[in-house]
């Protein structure tokens, strides 16, 4: 069995696909650096990530798929689910090897599965748009901690950039330890180096703007007042606002 080893980046995956087509041999499995070789591996090929190769593959995909098709691929990648790279490899092969548009053949297991995973990731991105809560810091920056199950933050950034274009903000993924900082002009990806203190679940009292607590209190009071006692239905509430988001919502934790 042929195995490709790559650096577990999206560009690396696209490079692997480029290499597979040049070599005319396709791996049965992809592994990352440091991962053990599968027992029945007979050959190992090391992929060297190459931006130009990756771009050629991506452009090729752009020609065969419409924009939604390419979006679907990034969504699947951002799911970070086990085996999503193998799935993408099979998916992309099917796209290149067919003359027509296979991306709507949902009788194909890989096509349907990719669609279902992408749907879950886009739901998570929507949850971020819904449940991100900014806290205002003393220096005027608005800070929001998140920890989505899929790596959906990049998908939600355009919404935040557009809506909160006239305020500085930082949204930080505590699970993956990276985030986006918007300085009033541009949003850029940031991570904190070793030795720096990354932001946490909450701003400390010193970091917080003097009025911040007050607006959280007002919001919580509003939230509580809106509930209609005669209709209480916590199951319905939880179904629409999963528990895992509650810890960052001032309406629950104050």
């Amino acid at each position: 069995m042929l195995v490709f080893r790559y650096d577990k980046s999206f560009e690396g995956l696209l490079t692997a696909i480029f290499d597979a087509y040049t070599r005319r041999t396709f791996p049965e499995q992809l592994i990352g650096p440091g991962e053990p070789l599968p027992m029945f591996a007979s050959e190992l090929f090391d992929v060297l990530t190459d931006t130009q190769k990756a771009e050629r593959v991506w452009r090729g995909l752009g020609k065969k798929l419409r924009r939604e098709g390419c979006n679907l691929l990034t969504h699947v990648w951002l799911s970070e689910t086990a085996g999503c790279d193998d799935l993408l490899l099979r998916y992309i092969r099917k796209v290149f090897d067919s003359s027509g548009d296979v991306s709507t053949d949902f009788a194909d297991r890989d096509i349907l599965e990719a669609r279902n995973i992408a749907l879950k990731v886009s739901r998570e991105a929507e949850h971020l748009r819904q449940f991100v809560r900014f806290r205002k810091a003393a220096d005027g920056t608005f800070y929001a901690p998140v920890s989505p199950i899929y790596n959906a933050l990049p998908l939600a950034i355009p919404y935040f950039r557009d809506r909160f274009a006239d305020q500085r903000w930082l949204i930080y993924d505590l699970k993956r330890q990276y985030g986006y900082y918007y300085d009033g002009q541009k949003a850029r990806e940031i991570a904190f180096a070793d030795g720096e203190t990354p932001p946490g679940d909450e701003l400390t009292e010193e970091q917080m703007d003097a009025d911040e607590r007050q607006f959280q209190t007002l919001w919580k009071a509003y939230f509580d007042s809106m509930a209609i006692q005669e209709r209480i239905n916590p199951q319905l509430q939880r179904r629409q606002m999963p528990r895992r988001f509650w810890k960052y919502l001032p309406e629950f934790n104050f």
Partner: peptide, 12 residues
């Protein structure tokens, strides 16, 4: 976008 849900499950 629904930004929250009250304890009766309605969208805010």
């Amino acid at each position: 976008i629904c930004h929250s849900f009250t304890s009766d499950g309605r969208c805010i």
